[in-house]
Design a protein around this nucleic acid. Structure first.
Length: 466
RNA sequence: GGGGAUGUAGCCAAGUGGUAAGGCCGAGGCCUGCAAAGCCUUUAUCAAGGGUUCGAUUCCCUUCAUCCCCUCCA
């Protein structure tokens, strides 16, 4: 079964094959570093993490580039408000971004290039566009002329003529001197409002437009045609549409082969917005005491093209689900049965593995994969007394394998118990044998206070750290 | 005004032209000295109204609700 993805460009599920056999080039629109990551960002980035991990699981060498947008209106505004240089302003947010990725156990991309470090590459593309008649210079900048690029609108399925300037109410119509309202800025000439933020260019001092950075950096690191380009649905238009226009106009080659976009999330059924007080960064959630793995589980296991309803009950449910998996693995590790393996369970492990893989192969349907996983857990729990150490080992190996995809399991062994605690457990076992249950419970309580939970099984007591 | 998406049990969430996975929570039961873990039982006619069909939750139309986009918001 091939891996299939829903390609935004064609609006269809397509079999995935990379341009170069065995290697996937993947560009993901990264954060604008003017704030900490919020759960909406995380949802998108986690979808990309799943994509990366799944392609790796399927044997591809994944070359992922994720950019950092460190030059735009928001970063400039932020740095000016604090009266510090742009780089000084964005630096802490860049660092926080990497910390957050680590906290949520992201697989690292190959590189995280910053826009400000690629100005010459952007200028080179703009020069090419002007030379090709795709762009023009005005008093305040250089613009891409969308009427020069016939396919404009093909990704977002927008009709050029029906674009309504300012329809979103977010941007003033007459802010710039453009021939057509839909033309977009490749280069913005310096104005006093930009302060110290400026670079030299053939058009005088100024700064790049937003979209050009992604074209420049993706081409520099991954080539002129990418296998996969991802982002949030909001990026479809104008950002990705503009990337296509400027990239394909500059190179004459297809820019991207598969476009994948993640849906947004809502919080408790409502749009997340600062004004509604339901706007959460990862840091906010950690401060509230939620664990990174629960957050990862919750955001990760809903299909990426479906709006996700983020709720606090949902995090608690995620936590409980993880505990079920943890306990399952814990029980397996304590299996002592060295007899013959139950062939039905061995067969089930195979079928559920296939079901798990088939689910995710189909446009990253991880919810289906998780369903297969829980079905396996239930079936094995049901017959746990007939599970042999060999089968337990196989199942644990399977979980270790899929952890490369999931990234939220807890696979570490229980660790060691110190002598004192081992003696306490032995003393409790002795007390139980003497029917001194009060003493036994007392010891268990004492161990629990140290974070050690003792469970009685037919094979004697087992313990785990909680 | 235009374009796109979603609406499945208390909550989260898969899926299918032939009466609906999985997880969480709740209730009852089994097991256990107790507990934990686990197992079993139990909860849905798939937003609403039409249409196509032998048969639709699954296809089509309309309505309603929510979300996204229409130049710099993941």
């Amino acid at each position: 079964m091939p891996v299939r993805f829903y390609n935004t460009m064609t609006r269809e599920l397509e079999d995935f094959t990379p341009l170069q056999q065995g290697t996937v080039t993947m560009y993901t629109c990264g954060p604008t570093v003017y704030n900490f990551l919020h759960i909406g960002n995380l949802r998108s980035f986690l979808f990309e993490d799943l994509l990366h991990r799944w392609l790796t699981y399927r044997g591809y060498n994944v070359r992922q580039i994720m950019n950092l947008t460190d030059i735009d209106d928001k970063t400039i505004k932020g740095s000016q408000a604090k009266k510090i240089p742009l780089a000084e302003y964005t630096e802490p947010y860049k660092k926080a971004f990497f910390d957050d990725l680590k906290t949520l156990n992201f697989t690292p991309a190959e590189k995280y290039p910053s826009a400000t470090e690629h100005i010459p590459e952007m200028v080179a593309i703009i020069e090419k566009l002007i030379a090709g008649g795709y762009a023009y210079e005005t008093d305040d900048g250089v613009y891409f002329k969308i009427t020069s690029f016939a396919p404009y609108g093909k990704l977002a399925h927008l009709d050029r003529d029906s674009l309504r300037a300012g329809a979103s109410g977010r941007v003033a119509n007459d802010e710039y001197e453009k021939e057509t309202v839909s033309d977009f800025a490749l280069w913005k000439k310096w104005t006093p409002g930009d302060g110290d933020v400026k670079w030299d260019s053939p058009w005088g001092e100024g700064r790049p437009g937003w979209h050009i950075e992604c074209s420049a950096m993706s081409m520099k690191y991954l080539g002129e045609t990418l296998d996969i380009h991802t982002g949030g649905v909001d990026n479809m238009f104008p950002h990705h549409e503009n990337e296509i226009a400027q990239s394909e106009a500059a190179t004459g080659k297809p820019f991207v082969r598969y476009w994948l976009h993640a849906a947004h999330l809502v919080v408790e059924g409502e749009k997340m917005a600062k004004s509604k007080g339901n706007f959460y960064t990862l840091r906010d959630l950690l401060e509230k005491g939620y664990s990174p793995r629960s957050i990862r589980y919750l955001l990760y296991t809903t299909h990426y093209r479906k709006p996700l309803n983020f709720t606090f009950d949902g995090i608690k449910a995620a936590d409980a689900s993880l505990k079920r998996i943890d306990d399952f693995l814990f029980t397996l590790r304590n299996v002592k049965n060295s007899g013959e393996a139950d062939s039905a369970l061995t067969a089930l492990l195979k079928t559920q593995t296939e079901k798990f893989e088939a689910g995710i192969d189909e446009d990253l349907n991880i919810a289906e994969g998780m369903g297969a996983l829980f079905e396996l857990i239930r079936a094995v729990n049901e017959k746990m007394e007939s599970v042999t150490t060999a089968l337990a080992g196989e199942i644990i190996a399977f979980f270790e394998k899929i952890e490369t995809v999931l990234g939220f399991l807890s696979l570490g062994g229980p660790g060691e118990l110190n002598e004192e605690d081992m003696e306490l457990i032995a003393a409790r076992t002795a007390a139980k044998k003497n029917k001194d249950f009060a003493r036994a419970d007392e010891i268990r309580k004492a161990l629990l206070a140290k974070g050690i939970e003792v469970r009685d099984t037919p094979d004697g007591p087992v313990w785990k750290r909680i």
